[in-house]
Design a binder for these strands. Structure first.
Ligand code: MN
Ligand code: MN
Ligand code: ZN
Ligand code: ZN
Lengths: 147, 147
DNA sequence: TCCTTTTTTGCAACATCGTTGCATTTATCA
DNA sequence: TGATAAATGCAACGATGTTGCAAAAAAGGA
């Protein structure tokens, strides 16, 4: 079934409030991961604190996952359907375009298997790639998008 | 030749000031990457602003590299000798211990080669691993170290 | 529709992190 | 031991993120 803001909130037993619906709408429309600032500047009646709480709630419920893209500026993207309040299953790489600033989930690129030095026990990993996204390889697009 | 705080500053044409010498001493002694807060709390007469400027200068000169360990809290570690003011060559993975909080450069683990989707041009990457470090696999050590 | 219950919001207040401008101090070297 | 350039220390500011608490709003049943 296709996901809608309403269906997502219903499935997670969360009330349908304006900010939550708007955040989900933005994340569903964009294919990219968004920072809290990017979300805030695209909301209708934004309240910083409510947005932070919204994102935390979504993360706890398995609706969004926090993205590590190497900028030390946390981004948020929709989880795959398999995630829920008990576990996150978002083991894919992420790409950050140094030209337009977009951060993209590479859902088809799974975490590489690493030969870790003896004595280390790896539980999870983040792979963040930097470079040029398909839109930016060709000359035209130069400016950072606000979304 | 063995690196000392003094030799490092001399090689980079930087003046030998107390804070710079202390930061280098800490980074040389610890095998781990340290955050600006961790550094600050282990300095003798710390000034936050001077420390930030010190770290920025060191990064520009190829003395330290900023470490992405997945916590969104930037860490700093000494570069290999090959780095300089023109280029950084620190393409290794980093490990963050969820028990003791230490972040360790895995200099022997180089970046994995990734099969990126068509259209993306990768220039650099960060691989951050999370789990238990050798010191923390066995029961004893439970508390986060301040260094 | 209206009332009750529970969740969610909005605001104030605060903490941490990081940056810039500028006058003062200090390291370096002649 | 000065002269000079580099580095520091401080004030001031902006951005980010958190908590407590009273007010508002969503949900569901009467
Ligand atoms: Mn993702
Ligand atoms: Mn490193
Ligand atoms: Zn791009
Ligand atoms: Zn450890």
């Amino acid at each position: 079934m296709k996901q809608t803001p309403t269906s997502i909130l219903t499935n997670s037993n969360l009330r349908k409030t304006p900010i939550r619906l708007q955040v989900l709408q933005l994340l569903l429309r964009e294919e990219t991961a968004l920072s809290s600032q990017q979300l805030e500047s695209n909301l209708h009646k934004p309240d910083r604190i409510t947005l932070y709480r919204t994102l935390r709630t979504f993360e706890q419920k398995g609706i969004v996952h926090q993205v590590v893209d190497g900028t030390n500026n946390p981004k948020y993207a929709l989880c795959l359907n398999a995630c829920n309040e008990h576990q996150h299953l978002d083991q894919h790489a992420h790409f950050h375009c140094v030209q337009c600033g977009k951060t993209i989930c590479l859902t088809e690129v799974s975490q590489p298997s690493i030969h870790t030095p003896a004595g280390f026990v790896v539980q999870s990993s983040h792979l963040a790639l930097q470079g040029f996204c398909p839109d930016c390889i060709f000359k035209g697009k130069k400016k950072k998008s606000t979304l």
